[in-house]
Simulated assay, not measured.
Amino acid sequence: MKVYPSGLSLAETAALLPDQPPYRARQVYEWFSKGIASFDAMTNLPQSLRERLSGLYGGQVRSSSIEKELIDEDGSLKLQIRLRDGAAVECVLLEDIEGRKTACLSSQVGCPMGCAFCKTGTLGFLRNLGPDEIIEQFHFLRDRRGFISNVVFMGMGEPLLNLENVRKAIVVLSSPEGIGMSLRKITISTSGIIPGILDIAQSGPKIRLAISLTSAEPNLRTRLMPVNKTWPLDELKSALLQFQQATRDRITLEVVLIGNMNASETDAEALAAWITPLKAQVNLIAWNPIQGMPFEQPSPRQMRIFSEILERKGIVTVQRMSRGRGVMGACGQLGDTLQTTNPPSA
């Protein structure tokens, strides 16, 4: 599909205008990076050039539109985005107690991973998002909440199965001529796609890496996360060690704790043993309720004891506060309003 302005790099923008001087391409790119809503807003460009650009895209700067906007009591914002082909995704803006705003962006329509505790996994997989469709989520959130300090690819989909387009989106996010976000403020969260992890280790970008681990017990992880059949825990750990050798970066391990399933002291001990000798921080996330799923939240006591066991082993551990639950925008809840919109692929 044609890439709309939000997803173009500076070089690609210049390629649209081969007869224009370099400074003009930079001007156009700066406007695209601001997430303008119309070509008429590009006020420092000649009218003829604005009309030319408008003609290339049928007068539409963006390929997608907002269909639904939901605001939680905690201030979290969830947007349902309708894409050009009628499919839909969701993205979320989270703000912490210190006022830092994080955009949680989707990379696919649906998700092929089928994690048992995640609503998105029940939708099936339709297609990858283009870089423009990814960046437009960022612009929609920024339009409503202003400056965004962090981006996490933790929305709908598995980012490392759409690595080419995610990479292009990161180029746009981090371009000093445009949005200018530091790569250290961008995180890719993966269920453990080993080829993608090794690709990033070798070729970049130098973003932060998070792994959805959930359990260090092989059979239980396979039950909860089918990815473990293809890329099991021992191979995943080997890939993460290679990643750290190449990048020298600490990895975040995301552990969704489910009551009476993976939240016992034995589970914590097994996780601590698996982590060694990785340089990692563990984010403990209480499972967020999803209607129709046969799971339960861990108790505060289970969360505390699990955390204390890891900390005694010298592992940096953070208990993440779930935000956005009221609008089904917390971890694992995205796609709740899309079940009849994006039917699973055959």
Results as ranks from 00 to 15, higher is better:
residue 287 W to F: 09
residue 282 V to M: 01
residue 68 K to A: 04
residue 295 F to V: 02
residue 278 L to F: 04
residue 185 K to M: 13
residue 322 S to C: 09
residue 274 W to D: 00
residue 319 Q to P: 07
residue 336 D to R: 14
residue 239 A to D: 03
residue 295 F to L: 05
residue 268 A to W: 01
residue 235 E to A: 15
residue 115 C to P: 00
residue 227 V to R: 07
residue 168 K to V: 01
residue 306 F to Q: 03
residue 138 F to N: 00
residue 131 P to C: 07
residue 208 R to W: 10
residue 144 R to M: 09
residue 300 P to M: 10
residue 245 Q to I: 13
residue 24 R to H: 06
residue 194 I to Y: 04
residue 304 R to G: 10
residue 251 I to G: 00
residue 100 R to D: 11
residue 106 S to F: 03
residue 20 Q to C: 12
residue 50 R to W: 08
residue 52 R to I: 04
residue 216 A to C: 03
residue 278 L to R: 00
residue 21 P to M: 13
residue 199 D to Y: 15
residue 248 R to F: 13
residue 92 V to H: 02
residue 341 T to V: 13
residue 196 G to D: 05
residue 61 V to A: 12
residue 71 I to S: 05
residue 250 R to N: 05
residue 272 A to F: 04
residue 219 N to H: 14
residue 238 S to D: 15
residue 281 Q to E: 12
residue 254 E to V: 05
residue 248 R to Q: 15
residue 269 E to S: 13
residue 270 A to L: 14
residue 223 R to L: 15
residue 332 G to Q: 05
residue 226 P to C: 12
residue 20 Q to S: 15
residue 175 S to E: 15
residue 85 D to M: 12
residue 266 T to C: 11
residue 295 F to G: 05
residue 262 N to Q: 07
residue 213 L to K: 04
residue 113 M to I: 11
residue 65 S to K: 14
residue 273 A to M: 08
residue 226 P to Y: 09
residue 280 A to F: 00
residue 134 I to F: 00
residue 312 R to F: 10
residue 166 V to D: 03
residue 150 N to A: 07
residue 125 F to W: 13
residue 43 T to D: 07
residue 89 V to K: 00
residue 339 Q to F: 13
residue 6 S to P: 09
residue 193 I to A: 10
residue 7 G to P: 00
residue 67 E to W: 08
residue 298 P to E: 06
residue 259 G to P: 04
residue 218 P to S: 10
residue 172 V to H: 07
residue 165 N to R: 12
residue 235 E to W: 11
residue 180 G to W: 13
residue 312 R to Y: 08
residue 165 N to Y: 11
residue 281 Q to R: 15
residue 309 I to N: 05
residue 163 L to D: 06
residue 87 A to N: 14
residue 41 A to V: 08
residue 265 E to D: 14
residue 92 V to L: 02
residue 136 E to G: 02
residue 249 D to M: 15
residue 225 M to S: 07
residue 335 G to S: 02
residue 260 N to F: 09
residue 143 D to S: 13
residue 111 C to V: 05
residue 240 L to V: 04
residue 333 Q to K: 12
residue 9 S to M: 09
residue 308 E to Y: 11
residue 125 F to E: 04
residue 105 L to Y: 06
residue 268 A to H: 06
residue 234 D to A: 15
residue 209 L to V: 07
residue 216 A to G: 07
residue 318 V to K: 14
